[in-house]
Design a binder for these strands. Structure first.
Length: 589
RNA sequence: CGGGGUGUAGCUUAGCCUGGUAGAGCGCCUGGUUUGGGACCAGGAGGUCGUAGGUUCGAAUCCUAUCGCCCCGACCA
């Protein structure tokens, strides 16, 4: 048991000025964290306890799923990253360090980066330590600090520059094995989130810079979340909007037959979809082709969408470019022959087709059939443009942003949208890293094979804040039992009265014996202060030992999540509390 | 990186427009009265007003630069 007066819980009456959202305010007010600088936080003693509980449950579930804990360095030689597959994409968010110390690094001084994750570290280890199929599969994990120089840290621990993360890496002999590892981790995640009392749903996700074939994110629904989740409860479809699709284009769609010849018409000054929708042109957005130009790894490429659709930029990741960005007008004109606003992809109108890395069309343009697009000549558009006859399309794909209300790809029911906080992510990586680092094994036919990898992350510190965001009221935090920094708080109203102190200690021992972590508030404060602080720090079970009750021969028992207060006769108090602790522990197991 | 906001005691802030002795509440220290939902009284400590220049007889206040922080966007494993 711990005594408040000898512990350290610096609570605040007022919210810090720089906190905007409930969970961030409560993190600070309840004395869980203190800010050092933007995105950099100290975990104060109470906050650290919650972090440790979450970590421990995470550890138990991963161990249960067969993963093996280790600990890797957080300072990485930069060469390792230069050798890996994502240096170009990841370098901007990495903190860099040199060994010179005076900022004047000589060429022979090694240069380091602070690890944002550890694929580049674990893969070489596995490469040198595992060479036989007999030693596979393996799944290694750590729970440790990660460093990412986020452009904009946000909301306390929600997006921090330094944060605590569980990261795991699986190595299998085959694709099927990798899928099994992936599934095992998905199950472990589900068990983990359930045990810590979080509502987290698995949604299909974009693989982003990580690469790899597929992935799921675990989302805690919350308005302040950074991600949009597209879902339908009935069908069970759920996906990050970056990845979400809809059944907007029927599978049995027959492409429209061409109508008329392609015909140029003057559209002076018209450079937007909206302007072409207006009189005198009156071409509705769903009859226009929107032509966007991007630069992928230095080469321009075209994306064609319906006029009233938006590009979901993350979906361009499927095209295989390491880096891509919108092209500037200066880059566009020499290739297409016109400025943005008059662009198109009709065969023969592109000035320098050989410069293009490809023309990629969203499936939904097939719904247009025959429509209008730019003529690649400033001030002119083309009508009677037919998708199958006139456009030089390299490949169709899914590039548009799904809108709520569109039909679910599984059931056809309308899709919905809500915000979520990403607390976990699992990726099936494939052989991307094994190839770069030469992580191979010998199979039972004496053949050399690439290991098939997966990687997995849980934002431990972010999860703590997400839980607060999910579970609080006007008075403070309401911790789920399993991760509460303490499970039982004994509010000792008269700490100087020896009899009361003895009762408090006896009850604390009983609760501890039943498996709870107990905090005794023995501060010489007025009762009001203690009750307010108790609500603020959100300990699930509160026992009040006060003069008033002791006169009647009772103590009081109150759950943080409930309103009612139970009076318990002193003689039964130890048993009642022990039972309450056991049943709460059981309910959250 | 673009847009907006902000920086005054440990915390929350007033004062800034219109230049003239830097104020309050909370917290802290001392004493007293209180004691079941953030008590009251009396006294006290605590500030180079983010930093650096400039204007001025005089700058928290006006000007310039710079740094930090917050929000929106872009970006983001």
């Amino acid at each position: 048991m711990k005594f408040w007066s000898r512990f350290f819980i610096p609570t605040l009456k007022e919210s810090p000025a720089d906190a905007e959202i409930a969970s961030h305010k409560l993190l600070v007010r309840a004395g869980l964290v203190r800010k050092l600088s933007g995105g950099l936080y100290t975990y104060m003693p109470l906050g650290l306890r919650a972090i440790q509980k979450i970590s421990q449950i995470c550890r138990e579930e991963l161990d249960g799923a067969g993963a093996i804990e280790l600990w890797m360095p957080h300072v990485h030689p930069v060469e390792l990253w230069e050798k890996g597959p994502r240096w170009a994409a990841a370098r901007e968010i990495m903190f860099r360090a040199d060994s010179a110390g005076d900022g004047k690094r000589a060429p022979r001084d090694p240069e380091f980066v602070l690890g944002p994750t550890h694929e580049e570290v674990i893969t070489p280890i596995v490469k040198s330590e595992i060479t036989s199929y007999r030693d596979l599969p393996k799944n290694f994990y750590q729970i440790a600090t990660k460093f990412r120089n986020e452009i904009r840290p946000r909301y306390g621990l929600m997006r921090a520059r330094e944060f605590i993360m569980m990261d795991a890496y699986s190595f299998d002999t085959t694709d099927e094995g990798a899928i099994a590892s992936y599934q095992a981790m998905k199950t472990a995640y589900e068990r983990f989130f359930r045990r810590i009392g979080a509502t987290a749903i698995a949604v299909e996700a974009d693989t982003g810079v990580m690469g790899g074939s597929y992935s799921h994110e675990f989302m805690v629904p919350a308005e302040i979340g950074d991600d949009d989740v597209i879902y339908n409860e009935e069908s069970g479809y759920a996906a990050n909007r970056e990845k979400a699709t809809s059944a907007l284009v029927p599978a049995d769609l027959v492409d429209a037959a061409p109508v008329g010849e392609v015909e140029e018409f003057a559209t002076p000054g018209v450079v937007t979809i909206a302007a072409l929708e207006a009189a005198p042109y009156s071409v509705s957005g769903d009859k226009q082709f929107k032509t966007l130009v991007y630069i992928g790894d230095g080469k321009p490429f075209i994306v064609i969408l319906r006029g009233n659709d938006e590009l979901e930029e993350a979906k361009l990741g499927s095209l295989g470019f390491t880096l891509f960005r919108p092209a500037t007008p200066e880059e566009i004109e020499p290739v297409l022959g016109a400025k943005p606003g008059s662009l198109g992809a009709v065969k023969g109108t592109i000035k320098d087709p050989s410069a293009l890395a490809g023309v990629f069309a969203d499936h939904a343009i097939r719904l247009i059939g025959n429509g209008v697009t730019g003529a690649n000549k400033d001030g002119f558009h083309l009508r009677n443009v037919n998708v199958t006859r006139d456009l030089a399309i390299t490949r169709f794909g899914d590039f548009r942003r799904v809108r709520p209300g569109e039909p679910d790809p599984k059931s056809g029911q309308p899709l919905k949208l809500r915000r979520g906080i990403e607390v976990g992510h699992i990726f099936k990586l494939g052989t991307k890293y094994s190839e770069k680092f030469g992580a191979v094994y010998t199979d039972d036919q004496k053949q050399t094979q690439l290991m098939v990898m997966g990687c997995y992350g849980i934002g431990i510190s972010r999860t703590m804040q997400a839980l607060i965001e999910q579970s609080h009221d006007a008075d403070g935090i309401i911790w789920p039992w399993a991760i509460a920094p303490f499970q039982v708080l004994i509010c000792l109203l008269d700490p100087k009265v020896e009899e009361a102190m003895n009762v408090a200690k006896t009850l604390a021992s009983a609760a501890e014996a039943a498996g709870a972590d107990v905090l005794i508030d023995d501060r010489e404060e007025r009762p009001g202060v203690k009750f307010k602080d108790a609500d603020l720090i959100g300990i699930p079970l509160r026992i009040t030992v006060g003069g008033k009750g002791l006169k009647e021969g009772v103590i009081e028992m109150k759950w943080r999540a409930q309103k009612d207060v139970a009076k318990v006769p002193l003689a039964e108090a130890e048993t009642t509390i022990a039972n309450a602790v056991r049943s709460a522990a059981q309910a959250s197991a």
